[in-house]
Nucleic acid binder design. Structure first.
Lengths: 368, 368
DNA sequence: CCTAGGATTGAGACCGGACTCACATCGATG
DNA sequence: CATCGATGTGAGTCCGGTCTCAATCCTAGG
C-alpha cells in the first residue's frame, strides 16, 4: 500500500563522513571526541553532523563497548506506590549518572521474575535491581550473581546470597510495633498479608518472602520477650484479592477470642481491611486498633489518622541505584547502608477495649 | 587489581556452531528457526546451545532487524499512582506482545521530556508512548511523528498533532462535575492545580496542559450555560509543593466571598488541600464541599468519603500500548477509543452552607 | 637540508546476529 | 541414465558504531 514505510535509514557516521569529506574513522573520532583530530576536520565533521542531524545509534555503540547504559529493574508491582516511590528513587539516580531503566513487573510471580531476568540479560543491561519475589527459589538470581553481573536487591533479601541489599530491618521494627501494641494492652494481634502460601500459616514454616517472615518473627519475639504466647492463629496469609482480605478481616474480628488489633502488611491491603472493619460497625481505635506498613500520605487523612510503619522507600531506591552504579563502574562497594523503618504513631492504635480477651492471662498461663 | 573483571565474553552463535561442528550460518538457522536445516544439524546445534547455555544477544539482533522490541514510555511522574496505574496497563500489554518498556520520568519538565525522547530514540525504541508535559511546545514530538516513528499520547493531547491519543474528554466531565456543584448551590468554586505558569490565571491565557485547560473550560461552560459568571479569581495554578498548596487553599477559603467548594486537580494535591481545610477547622462537606480528580481507593476511607472523578487510567494504558503495537506492526489503526470519566458521588459534596455568598445574585447581576 | 617523532588520517577488523548467494546433494521424473 | 527442483550447507556481507594498525604529514632539532 504505502511505500514510505520502507525501513527508516537513519544517518550514520559514514554519511557524516562523506558529507565532511573525511574517512569514517576520522568522523567517528571527531564525533566521539577521542584520538587525534585536526581542528579543521573536527569542525567540518561537527558541522556535517549538525546539518544531517546525526544521532549515534546507541545499539551499535553498545555492541562493541559492551555497555548498554541501561539497568533492569524488576519489581512486584509498580501500581503499588511503595514500588512507585522506590522506582522513582532508582530512575532519578540512574538518570543523573547517565543510565536508563527498563522496568519489568512480575506480579510477585516467580516464573515471571525468572523470565524478566532472562529478557533483561538478553538485552544486555549493565546491571539489575531486583525485589526478589521469593527468597527461597533464587537459582536465577544466583546465576546472575555468579556470572558477575552487577546485582542489587531492594526491599527484600534472597536466601543467604551475598548481594548488596537495600531493605529495612523488618524484624526490628516489627518487634517495636508489636511491643507498642502489647503496651497498649493488646494480646490478640492479627497480621494480614497477601503473601501466597500452599498452606495456612504454621510456626516454623518457610515463607517465600523474607519481609513477611521477618515481620512475623519480630512479632513473635516481642510476644515471647514479654512472656506472652504468640497468637499464631491470627497470622493470616493468602489474603489475595479484596474479597478475601475482607473475609479474613471479618474472621479474625469475630468470636469471643477475637483480635483487638490488626496489622496490615501493606498499604494496598490496608484499604480493604479498614473497610471491612468499618462494615462490621467497629470503630478504630475504640473497638479495634489498626496499624499498617507503608506511610502513604492519605493515612493522615482518615479518621482517625492511621498509625503506620514508615520505610524510607525513596532513599532505598536511590541507594540501590547508587550501589549498582558503583558495581557497574567497578568501584568498591560502600559501607552497607542501614535503613530504619520508624513507627509513626497517629491515631489508629488505642488501648485494648475493656472486657475483651478477659481470659488472656489464663490462656497465657496455660500455654506458657 | 582483580583480573576477573575482564569483559565477560558470552557465548555466541559462533561458539555454538563450533561445538556442534557446523557453520555459523547453519547454527544461526537452527537457532533462529528459519531457512533449511537438517534434523541432524538442528539437534546437534540445539544440544550445543543448551550445553553452553547460549542466549542470543538481543542488541546484535536488533542491529540488523532494526527492531528492538522495546517501547519508550515518557511520563510526568510514576510516583503518582495515576501514572503508576497507566504504566501498569502499558507494561502488562507490552509484555504480552513481547515488548519491553523503558520508562523515563520527566517531572513534567519540558526540557527533560525533550532529552528523554532523544535518548529513547538513540536507543532505537520501536515506538513511544508519551504523556506530553506541554501541549504547546511540541516540536520534539512533531519531529518524532514526522519521522514516522510510532507514537501514541496518553492522558493529554499535544497541540493539534494528529497522533492517536488515549485520554478522557476532560471538558465534558468537568462540565458535569461543575454542574453537580452548581446544582448543590455552590457559586464560588475553586480549582487548584500544580500546573506551572508564568503568571496567575487569566481568562484566555494559553495553558501548557491540555488537561487543565479543558477542565477550566468545562467549568466555565457549566457556569455560563447556567447564566452565571465564572469565578476566575478562584482558579489557582502554580500550587507546586505542599506549602503552596496549603496556602492557596487557605486563601480561597478566606474572606467574605470565600469559595464554598474546592476542586483538586489530582490525587496528590488533594491530600494537602484536605489537610489545609481541616487545619482551618472547616468540615467537609458542611463548611466546604470537596471534589478531586482521580479515584484512588483511599478516597473511600476518609470521613466523609471523597467525591471524585474517576478516569479509566489502567485501560488507557492498555489502549495506548495496543495502539502503539498496532502502529509498530504496520496494522491499520483501530477506531479511536473513547474514554469516559465518571463522577463518583460519595460524601464530600454538600449543599452550599447557608449564609455564605449572600451577595452572589448581585455579583452575578453586576457581572452579567 | 635531513630526519626522528608526534600528529593526522584512512583502511579495515570486529562486536554478534541475520541473511544473501553460490555451491553441493539427493530423490524423483522422463 | 540425464535432468530438475527442493533441500542443505558454508562463505561472506551487513547493521552502525569503536578501535587497531600502518601509512602519511609536519615540524623541530641536528
Amino acid at each position: 500500500m504505502n511505500g514510505e514505510v520502507a525501513r527508516r535509514r537513519d544517518v550514520t557516521v559514514a554519511d557524516v563522513a562523506k558529507a565532511a569529506r573525511v574517512s569514517k574513522a576520522q568522523a567517528a573520532r571527531a564525533l566521539g571526541n577521542y584520538g587525534a583530530v585536526s581542528d579543521d576536520v573536527r569542525e567540518r565533521v561537527l558541522a556535517a553532523a549538525e546539518a544531517l542531524s546525526y544521532r549515534p545509534n546507541e545499539l551499535a555503540r553498545s555492541m562493541n563497548t559492551g555497555k548498554s547504559h541501561t539497568i533492569g529493574v524488576v519489581v512486584g508491582d509498580i501500581e503499588n506506590p511503595h514500588f512507585g516511590l522506590a522506582t522513582r528513587g532508582i530512575t532519578d539516580t540512574a538518570k543523573k549518572a547517565g543510565y536508563n531503566v527498563i522496568l519489568v513487573n512480575t506480579d510477585e510471580d516467580r516464573s515471571a521474575e525468572v523470565e524478566a531476568v532472562r529478557v533483561l540479560l538478553d538485552k544486555r543491561v549493565d546491571g539489575l535491581i531486583v525485589a526478589p519475589a521469593s527468597s527461597v527459589d533464587t537459582d536465577h538470581l544466583q546465576d546472575v550473581h555468579r556470572s558477575g553481573r552487577p546485582l542489587v536487591f531492594i526491599d527484600r533479601t534472597a536466601g543467604d546470597m551475598q548481594v548488596e541489599t537495600m531493605a529495612v530491618d523488618m524484624a526490628r521494627i516489627s518487634r517495636e510495633a508489636t511491643q507498642y501494641l502489647l503496651d497498649a494492652g493488646h494480646r490478640r494481634i492479627a497480621f494480614i498479608s497477601t503473601l501466597r502460601t500452599d498452606s495456612p500459616y504454621a510456626a516454623g514454616m518457610t515463607l517465600e518472602s523474607s519481609q513477611i517472615a521477618d515481620r512475623i518473627e519480630g512479632m513473635r519475639e516481642a510476644f515471647l520477650s514479654s512472656g506472652l504466647p504468640f497468637p499464631e492463629d491470627l497470622v493470616r496469609l493468602n489474603a489475595g484479592d479484596e474479597d478475601s482480605i475482607r473475609s479474613v478481616t471479618r474472621e479474625v474480628l469475630r468470636g469471643p477470642d477475637r483480635a483487638t488489633a490488626v496489622v496490615a502488611s501493606d498499604g494496598l491491603i490496608a484499604l480493604s481491611v479498614v473497610e471491612a472493619i468499618q462494615e462490621l460497625g467497629l470503630s478504630i481505635p475504640a473497638d479495634v486498633s489498626f496499624l499498617m506498613y507503608d506511610d502513604f500520605a492519605w493515612t493522615r487523612l482518615t479518621t482517625p489518622p492511621l498509625t503506620v510503619i514508615a520505610q524510607p522507600v525513596y532513599n532505598m531506591g536511590v541507594a540501590a541505584a547508587k550501589a549498582l552504579i558503583r558495581q557497574m563502574e567497578g568501584l568498591p562497594a560502600a559501607a552497607p547502608a542501614q535503613f530504619t523503618a520508624t513507627l509513626v504513631r497517629r491515631g489508629s492504635v488505642g488501648p485494648r477495649p475493656v472486657g475483651e480477651n478477659l481470659a488472656r492471662e489464663d490462656v497465657g498461663a496455660r500455654l506458657s
